[in-house]
Design a protein around this nucleic acid. Sequence first.
DNA 1: ATAAACAGCGCAATCGTTTGCGCAAAAATG
DNA 2: CATTTTTGCGCAAACGATTGCGCTGTTTAT
Lengths: 337, 337
Amino acid sequence: MNGKNNLAAISDRTGYSVSTVSRVLSGKAEKYRISQSAVERITKEARRCGYRPNLVAQSLRTRQSQTVGLVVPGIDNPFFATLASIIISQLDARGYHTLLADSRESEREERQALEMFQDRGVDGILAVPVASSPEFHEEVGANVPLVLIDRYFQETSLSYVCTDNYAGAYMAAQYLVDKGYRRILAIQGVPASMPNRERVRGFLDAIKGHGVESRVVGDAFSVENGSRETLAAFAGNPGAYDAVFAFSATILIGTISALRKLGLTEGTDVGVISYDNNGFLDFMNPPVTRVEQPLQEAGEIAVEALFSLMEAHRSSLPRPAPVQQLVRPTLIIRESC
Amino acid sequence: MNGKNNLAAISDRTGYSVSTVSRVLSGKAEKYRISQSAVERITKEARRCGYRPNLVAQSLRTRQSQTVGLVVPGIDNPFFATLASIIISQLDARGYHTLLADSRESEREERQALEMFQDRGVDGILAVPVASSPEFHEEVGANVPLVLIDRYFQETSLSYVCTDNYAGAYMAAQYLVDKGYRRILAIQGVPASMPNRERVRGFLDAIKGHGVESRVVGDAFSVENGSRETLAAFAGNPGAYDAVFAFSATILIGTISALRKLGLTEGTDVGVISYDNNGFLDFMNPPVTRVEQPLQEAGEIAVEALFSLMEAHRSSLPRPAPVQQLVRPTLIIRESC
DNA sequence: ATAAACAGCGCAATCGTTTGCGCAAAAATG
DNA sequence: CATTTTTGCGCAAACGATTGCGCTGTTTAT
């Protein structure tokens, strides 16, 4: 084309100043009482040459980027992929774009991502935190609106929206107990994470006083962890446990894979129950009983909370009280235990 | 803190000009022959106050953003989630950040995303295109490095990296024929997309001359489509087909769900075969035979291609010849047919 | 001794937009 | 007709970083 395609170019071609062109094209024409004739001439020229504002310059000047940063501990995990999908849709619906980062469960990478978000001037941040203590997140949260999701910290003033992992695990364990299982292996995810700790607590509380032998093992929300721990527990002792509680769908896959390798069948030889929902779980053999987390709802609440923080931030109003909410999961009963 | 935290502030506090501070902090000290003493004083002060460059300003000035845009047709689809995950990791490893957009199979939203990417000055774009013709993408590709992935266009000068869908579908169909199936229902995804067209072509070519009755139905890579089409095909006529070829894992889920609802069992009553790989497929009942696409490999090649385009673009060198590559899928044989 | 080379750094323009302030002309008021 | 108000628009300074050019002073070559 004609080389440049910015306000200055339109200014040149219409004879109006850059200021006027800017005001017209950013919809502030009447606020600044620009004449009808100017508005028409300018919008016509802008349309003609397909003008599009440079968002980088706009961000620099206005300190708003129409972008939020989202950091998750592993986008390859279907759970976080689903969560990300839900959040991206929500943001999109509000006209915001998403910078997506993956911390891979690493505190260092998480810090980098959060710093990068700030350096790029995002308007807000949604994070599934990985760090073991809230200091850094709180520091970041003091500068830019920040809402935690899925994981959170004790005693923090940050907003968070999570599912009630204590209740979820409690329901699952109680169900196993009711079904008569008495030797239960729980395979956990990342031990330090709040959801995991809450699940362990819910699990232990539910089996307490029922004469259940149990062990909690494992260290990651991964297929590999599920497989390794299951092998370790059952190899050489096929009757070691009568049920397995997998703390995530990924872990479940590892567990089932290992059971099969050992010649055990889930559901009959060993009861299994899982966390997370997933279209596949209904078509496994047997269909898997599981705790479903209301991710859509959690995502909606989190985004809502973030936007009210952002709104206050924009107007330099006092920060609204933090939203700290747990949403209730539900037990989906099938045939695996 | 001390209010601002930019080059000017450091300039004030050290007595050196903004230029010198900039050159030191952006690692160009020796190129511009800055003295040791200046370098030390400045880096010390920068460390003290935790200086971090404003990436928005940097982008505006240098026209580089260390960002690439990624647009997929549905991040909620596990296939694209996996692809996105792979690509984000690759970009991250090269120090690039990712703006992720979801076109939801809508040409309009795809255009919006691509335009937004340009407005934000991304350094490159990776796209799973949705449009039916390449014009718009070619236009964009003329301005900013662009590589297509998973889907592509005929006769385009754009780079693309996809799997060989013709070969994949051919293998699958041939396997069904070899197994003796003669009435095959193929449930396709988005009809106009190149992978889908190639799969249809591969499917039809493979069954040709073998006396196979077949129909190709459906219009989306979704669970709902799989379920709807399966119901329509088998309701009132349980023996309508002896095998179903699902063109994606999501479609497969819908198909199995529908078969069960109709009292049919996949594998025995009706053979099923699927496209895509997925940890769950091995643990369904029965385990599902499927065509696995080498996504990791495709992602690596695509990112590699993108970076060589970006490199040339940065140095205003002539654009290297487009990379147009198909990578070969493999058939994973299990027990569902 | 004079010129040339070089070391070390700053000036000021630039990227594209936004916006407070002010200025002139036109319109309204007394 | 003199004053005030309103209308319509432009000047220029931001936002924070980068970089071509040039300016001083010192060192080296001729």
